[in-house]
Amino acid sequence: MVCLLVWGFGGLRFETSIGTGYDLSNSVFSPDGRNFQVEYAVKAVENGGTAVGIRCKDGVVLAVEKIITSKLLKPGANKRIATVDRHVGIVSAGLVPDGRHFVSRARDEASSWRGVYKGPIPTSALANRLGGYVQAYTLYSSVRPFGTTAIVAGWDSEAELAVDGQVGSGPSSGSGGKVEGAKGGGPGLYMIEPSGLYWGYYGAATGKGRQAAKAELEKLDLSSGNLSLADGVKEAARIIYVAHEDSKDKEFELEMSWISSVDGPTKGRHEEVPKELREEAEKAAKRALEGEDEEEEEKMEE
């Protein structure tokens, strides 16, 4: 009875969720078709450090702005980008422990895929399974949705991979021939939201500075597929610095990882961007920002 009374009151002002009662339980729709718990989870994401992913022609790059919450934390420790299998990286914005659980699930999925198919999981299949997993957390009143939006980056090998445990390649002639010069694989970039919604992206951004980051990503013309991985690393660093402009008072650390094609620098594996390369990209990013400031000042003077 009490519940009914509260709902009846809320009916007068359903444009907001507060006081309607529809925002208290997961998996319950409001009369206008919204799940407020999911929307609150999105709010948690919007407070997290900015994370971006860029799909380049010969690889994928991930970057995250790691706000330094205490001077007592060891620089470079407490990584936020995780490796799944060998060829996939995941970064998330929002609640860090939720992100860790998400990564743990991704690793289980990748490993079980290998158990069945004796090969690496395609990035699209991993994104699909993770999307399904996150979505399940919007269906039950006993759980809450993930407070994270995750960016999943991977490189599906374009070379012919041996089956796990394969010992020979069989006869080079005869039946069961292979298609000459057939090519598959390539870069993959997906973003999974607290609702379980996921899309494939050319460039993805989430977290506090996502608006600025998305504006910068759109300028890169990623859909034409011309951006190289080396340039992608520089752009990702610059975009994180641009996105950080609004919370300038807080110090941050830049963490970056990449996955190149099989004949590229990481040989199809997900790895941390080497320190020298990252520092070079950071220097360039700072220079670009200072350049912008000067231009603005010049305009002001005019």
Binding site: K79, T83, D85, R86, R107, S111, R114, D164, E272
Partner: peptide, 23 residues
């Protein structure tokens, strides 16, 4: 035995993947 070798090879592969979770 070659099939047992393949089993051990997959086992070692899974260990290598797990070890590479650490940076």
């Amino acid at each position: 035995d070659v099939s047992d070798m393949q089993y051990i090879d997959r086992l070692l592969e899974s260990i290598d993947i797990r070890e590479n979770y650490s940076h």
